[in-house]
Amino acid sequence: MSISVAMTVNGKAVSGKVEARTLLVQFLREHLGMTGTHVGCDTSQCGACVVDVDGKSVKSCTILAVQAEGSKVITIEGLAESPDKLHPMQEAFRENHALQCGFCTPGMVMSAIDMVKRHNYQLDEATVRRELEGNLCRCTGYHNIVKAILAAAPAMKSAGV
């Protein structure tokens, strides 16, 4: 069944024809060619596909594209102001070596930003670790990811993002 779908992705209006079964992540990757959002599992566990839909962090592998009709979607590609001005969370990941192979990174960064905002920019290590339940990383052992998120929280606050 072919359906028209329209939404805003990273501030840009986009539309396309999809099948009802097309997942949001497939729409982003295959229809829009935005391959920054990754797929690392088929059971909604790994979190490599996390994006922001209408201000909420969601796993784009567990939502149909048609369910995001009319939504505002933000992906990893939409965070940096410019190639030289990264989002404070991206900057903190770089500064703290919170990524190695880079595959889980987009979802990890998207979840981390959501986490900081939900906790009103105030986090401690135990909270960060617990809140990362939906994101798997096989490279970093999480140590530096936790460090990066703790460092990014005040940076996001002072940057007003």
Binding site: M34, V39, L79, L86, G102
Partner: peptide, 21 residues
């Protein structure tokens, strides 16, 4: 030294096999 490769991975512009058009 901070990593050279990070910028592309952090901005969703890495190129993995499944990303190839």
């Amino acid at each position: 030294v901070l990593r050279t490769e990070d910028k592309r991975f952090l901005t969703g512009t890495g190129r993995y096999v499944d990303d190839l058009p």
